[in-house]
Write a protein that binds this DNA or RNA. Structure first.
Lengths: 241, 241
DNA sequence: TCTTGCATTCTTGTATACCAGGATACTAGT
DNA sequence: ACTAGTATCCTGGTATACAAGAATGCAAGA
């Protein structure tokens, strides 16, 4: 692999490793139970163990890895209760925020939101889904900004990570963008006419679209979820008993 | 200083350093702008830089430290907007949770809560405030459990850390416990008769007691807060410009 | 006296060497 | 054939050595 010409800036290299591993876990390329060792990953990226170690530790705290001292580091399974609670966090915070935003939004804010909607429409028309998802994120963050709580976004981000892992398993992203755009536009309309209740209703539905199918997804991909996996770290814990 | 006989369990030593530094920052013993170096702290605790480094990184991510590469590590000032948003997070999540709990609580749950209230009353009577605050935390966590969202508590915990830092500056903890206990009891009463709206109202007031005085506290302790500190890391950034 | 340049020193970032403990595979004994 | 014991390997945990950059102090010149 070997990235990092280095010299860019300290800790930038580790950041890149983090983003790469994080993405591979969320996208399911690294399956739960997969074993990662500091030495191997470090070798793959042309780094020593030290910076890789910090990345592992960060992913461990976020619930993506399980570091077992003297044994190994493994990709963590998805915990359904944890995902459920992440949904609770995101839905609760974003819904109250959008209600506040509906009350606080200035004409300039509404204009900015409408511009974001336009950009999203263009992205879909161009088939540039990566950009669309970036704009999606940007819009939700902007709503939090209008509500006057910019720092809350990082809480949402950590919750979202768990949800994205499930969302990716549903694979149905092909047809979703249009619906998401529709919901975004409706939310902005509600905000424009200061309809807090309407905005909350749409936001709730919006945030639940990806979450709704979790039971079905868990049934279809049992090896990704916690509880009686056939292989992976479950085997380790089983042998411990 | 020198703790850690080691051999207890891996990473336990670092955990102790974390808790100690965290406590000293929250309690204000380490003032914003104070300089910490990995080597000095490591020496003080009888550890090498490696485990201390991970502690620094963690405190940095939580907003308690500012690590500036090749320069040093400093205790971060309190950011009023960050505290405000932490309050938003805690209040929003706990209020919805307590409403859910009011609907979901079984007689056994109510009994457990009432027992917690009794324990809190005993602690105050004994003057054991440390135990009281532990029971306070336990009660809030238990409410989240009744609401069916155990994992949300760790989100609250990180938000609470920022709030505790402000709360400590208010110093008025001597007369508070009685009031807090009163509020706790009222919340449990609301839950017992499934009065969600009432529980939310009391919980909101309860959570805002510590937060209410933030403006005054910021005015009384300007050196603890972000924005035009007379000394500390502000001086560094000033020189950069 | 003030400014400018340099060298020293201190910081974190990174790499590497060593330690302790658990998992595994092999071997000896039954 | 199977079980128990043991030796080895592999893991993360820790300590330490080295590198790169920034701040500071001093000295030399104007």
């Amino acid at each position: 692999m070997t990235i990092a010409p280095r010299h860019l800036s300290p800790r930038a290299t580790g950041q890149q490793v983090y983003e790469d591993l994080h993405g591979r876990i969320v996208r399911g390329e690294l399956r739960p139970g997969a074993s990662l060792t500091e030495a191997r990953i470090g070798e793959a990226y042309g780094l020593s163990r030290t910076p890789v170690r910090e990345v592992f530790w960060r992913l461990n705290e976020e619930g993506f890895l399980r570091v077992i001292p003297q044994v190994g580091t493994f990709v963590a399974p998805i915990s359904v209760p944890a995902v459920r609670d992440a949904q609770f966090v995101r839905e609760t915070l974003e819904c109250r925020a959008v209600a506040d935003a509906a009350g606080l939004a200035t004409p300039a804010d509404v204009l900015a939101l409408q511009r974001l909607i336009q950009d999203q429409r263009s992205s879909i028309a161009d088939g540039d889904f990566a950009n669309f998802f970036a704009l999606d994120e940007q819009m939700h963050r902007h709503l939090m900004l209008i509500a006057g709580h910019p720092f809350v976004w990082q809480v949402i981000t950590s919750a979202k990570a768990q949800l994205d892992r499930v969302r990716f398993l549903s694979l149905e992203q092909g047809t979703w963008p249009a619906m998401i755009l529709e919901q975004h536009a409706t939310i902005v309309d509600c905000i424009a006419r200061h309809d807090a209740a309407g905005a909350v209703a749409i936001m709730t539905a919006h945030l639940r679209t990806a979450f709704a199918a979790i039971e079905r997804i868990a049934a279809e991909h049992p090896d990704f979820f916690e509880g009686s996996e056939p292989s992976g770290i479950a085997a380790i814990f089983r042998k411990r008993a």
